[in-house]
Design a protein around this nucleic acid. Structure first.
Lengths: 341, 341
DNA sequence: TTGTAGGCGTTATCAC
DNA sequence: GTGATAACGCCTACAA
């Protein structure tokens, strides 16, 4: 029995197929310069032995690992999990494996993880946002590991970006609420510390308001972690101010759902008393009552397109380096015209 | 400049530290039998050169890859994404990397993915459920790759299981609804084809009903993919039967949320007209109105405990081989006593 | 405590 | 079309 512990190696296949290891390697790698009859002998021998190539040896010799890494803030948030789902699916079609790490929004931890990924030999890395430690990008460049930013349209020089313009998104939200006649607006933003996406959305929102003469100092802004409870409590703070806003833009559907929950529990009618707007268009946007007006982020598409970039040849990559995806306004029941004074 | 393309290797560090490669290796691997002064010289040299070890070479030589694989149905469902989040976090603490694959509930695809993971050299694999192709488990056993089932408490011989008893869970749900006085019950189950968890839940539910004399042939059961819309439409079918159930158990909170949506849209009051019960206790369970009565699945804990098993020594593993976790009944507003006849 | 040498399993470069 | 042969970068006896 050839079923020795661990299993057969390439040389065992060669022996069984009565040829040289080189030929086996050629067959396994689809090299066409092999006699048809020999090829079949090799394939049969490999099957019979239950041969599985040793990826480490292959990687060491060929410098191609077929490994890609991704560092995302967390998998507990659907917006990232969905992106990774798309990324993985597309990579798997090409037999590329994905190593995934969660940074919990900590860019120092992200650096450590990038190091480990480089050590594992990943050929590319998918990152979230464009804000990273300089050491992180320097490392990737020095080690010739390609990288792709997601959820942003700002690409850093040698890297690529697949995403959208967060500032523009913030402006779109503001514009929509302004057009409904609101003048007292507030925002529950994500934590902007080390988070360029949350910051971009906030900046865009305030800029659009400033453009119509609403002073940013007058706009109540609270930051919150992306959790239902945080959205709820921040909404409580916002609504207990002397000058209640009539419309609140939230940096995520989770926060918006929490905000609506607060309103429910406190007899505040949405959207009659206050309009609430979300961001992401997650599944939960259809579960609140009223359902959530929000901006749709194409999470799965971002993952797929990031994969496409990674799988592309250096030549094709030029065209794919910067992809700004559209984010769509989804109007549902949680927003309404400003109440008459 | 030593910043040659790709980067320094172990031997370069040795040269710069004026010692042998063996000593560098010892330092890097924490071997204590190294002179303190030499150790520091090596560490400094490594830092100055920006040395990153080559994982492939290391793995090839030592047969330890520090790689673990996971094959889950999808990341688009929070119940799995959360488990993976816990798994990854715990593994990362020990510098073990996680390769993740989604099988889309297809056990043939799962086999292909297991093969690829073995090729990558993973030391263990985390699987969902206990139903797999025999070839899959045979491969893992032959290649000496440990495996852990999750979301189930049935362990296959050499493998481990971290999860819960799905049948018991189904019985718990039935018991709760029976105790509320319901006698006309229905279920919207997940797709049971190739899914032992969905099947277990369904079987348990029906068994408990049978135990009180309710014939399973009389219990309407529909299967649905885990999507809001499917839950909604199945609920429509259930409620348009001549003999409407007064209580419906859903195999997932997603389905239950969809079911409640159907009721909303069609003037059916929950829980007055019909009680709806979910499964998983996802975040969305707090977003439906009324909020969802459900059974809590400890997804993150399962991931963490699976990691603990994987990281444990062979000796410790004996104790961790079968872990049945408790699933907790969470009573909220979507269930109520059966209406008086 | 440190250095030398051999080999892990594969692929690439030569010849033939 | 096929077969030797030499690396790939590292770890680990073993020797010193």
């Amino acid at each position: 029995m050839d079923s020795e512990a661990g299993g057969a190696k390439l040389i065992d296949v060669a022996k069984r197929a009565s040829c040289s290891p080189a030929t086996v390697s050629r067959v396994l790698n689809g090299n066409p310069t092999v006699n048809e009859e020999v090829r079949e002998r090799v394939l049969r021998a490999a099957r019979e032995l239950g041969y599985v190539p040793n990826g480490s040896a292959r990687a060491l010799r060929s410098t191609r690992t077929r490994l890609v890494g991704a560092i995302i803030p967390t998998l507990a948030h659907a917006i990232y999990a969905t992106m990774v789902d798309g990324l993985q699916a597309r990579l798997a079609e090409k037999d590329v494996s994905l190593i995934i790490n969660t940074s919990t929004y900590d860019i120092d931890l992200e650096y450590e993880q990038a190091r480990l990924l480089v050590e594992r030999g990943v050929e590319s890395i998918v990152l979230v946002g464009s804000l990273h430690r300089p050491e992180t990008l320097a490392l990737l460049e020095q080690k010739r590991v390609g990288y792709v930013f997601t959820y942003t349209s700002d690409a850093a020089e040698p890297g690529a970006a697949v995403g959208f313009d967060n500032e523009k998104a913030g402006r779109t939200a503001a514009r929509y609420l302004l057009d409904l006649g609101h003048t007292r607006l507030g925002m529950i933003a994500g934590i902007t510390q080390d988070n360029d996406r949350a910051k971009g959305r906030l900046d865009g929102f305030l800029k659009e308001l400033a453009a119509v003469g609403i002073d940013r100092a007058k706009v109540p802004v609270l930051e919150a972690a992306y959790r239902l409870d945080d959205g709820r409590s921040r909404m409580g703070e916002l609504m207990s101010r002397p000058q209640r806003p009539t419309a609140v833009f939230c940096g995520s559907d989770i926060l918006a759902a929490g905000a609506i929950k607060h309103c429910h529990d406190n007899g505040i009618a949405v959207p009659r008393d206050v309009s609430v707007m979300g961001f992401d268009n997650l599944e939960i946007a259809e579960l609140t009552s009223p359902e959530l007006t929000t901006l749709e982020v194409p999470a799965r598409d971002m993952g797929r397109l990031a994969a496409d970039y990674i799988l592309a040849s250096p030549l094709q990559r030029r065209h794919l380096r910067q992809r700004e995806l559209a984010i769509r306004l989804i109007v549902r029941g949680s927003t309404a015209p400003a109440p008459a004074r």
